[in-house]
């Protein structure tokens, strides 16, 4: 039972990570938003699995929050944003797709090395998924620094948040509810602020290419 639960948890985490890697692979904003929505659903399923196994009521609420807000509401908001900016223009990323995928793979290996000492200490059946969550955090950070379009960077930030939530759920069976909700609302506020900033960027430069921001310093 423990073994099957561990395997399923790792399976869920790898799905979450794969959706993160999709951000590096695809170019269109619609695909990015779809990947983020799928990632949130996979995250909610994994958290729900842990909740079902540990019988924790708080984790069920967290899973429902993830599913409702991140799986449904945020993608709708993102889609509305995308529609507002007209047809998504393809911007060349700083690092090309094939190279960034390979870098993404290497980052996951790095995450394994980083998490290694913790794996030795932890006795939870879910511990094998922790490197994957850490890998997602690295990959999302890489998405944020290697992509030029502001919308993609926002999605990268949201994926980063997913990675942190997954790491917390796998490593400790969920942090105290109040902290979880605090972090969650923080990210939500961040998202809303970024949304407004993107509108401002769009209005000023008529593009959401963040390279344009360099013009401000001239």
């Amino acid at each position: 039972m423990d073994f099957a639960f561990g395997q399923l948890a790792v399976l869920g985490s790898s799905l979450v990570l794969l959706c993160g890697l999709t951000l590096l692979w695809r170019r269109g904003s619609a695909a990015h938003i779809g990947a983020f929505a799928a990632q949130s659903v996979a995250l909610a399923a994994t958290v729900g699995l842990i909740a079902g196994f540990t019988g924790s009521r708080e984790l069920w609420i967290v899973a429902a929050l993830f599913l409702g807000l991140k799986g449904i509401v945020m993608p709708i908001l993102l889609k509305r944003m995308e529609r507002r900016f007209g047809r998504p223009r393809e911007l060349d990323p700083y690092v090309n797709t094939a190279t960034s995928l390979v870098i993404g793979g290497l980052l996951v290996v790095l995450a394994y090395i980083v998490i290694w000492p913790i794996l030795d200490v932890s006795r939870l059946p879910t511990r094998a998924g922790m490197p994957l969550a850490m890998g997602l955090i690295f990959v999302s950070l890489f998405v944020i620094i290697s992509r030029k379009k502001a919308l993609t960077q926002v999605i990268g930030f949201l994926a980063l948040e997913n990675g942190i939530a997954l790491l917390a759920a796998l490593g400790t069976y969920g942090i105290p509810f109040i902290v979880e909700v605090g972090v969650f609302l923080d990210a939500l506020m961040g998202f809303l602020v970024m949304q407004i900033v993107i509108y401002r960027i769009q209005e000023t430069f008529e593009s959401i290419d963040v390279e344009q921001l360099n013009r401000l310093s001239q």
């Binding site: 790898s14 692979w25 797709t97 390979v102």
Partner: peptide, 10 residues
């Protein structure tokens, strides 16, 4: 193919 390579590495 890079995607599938990364999948295999993972």
């Amino acid at each position: 193919l890079a995607v599938s390579f990364v999948l295999a590495v993972l």
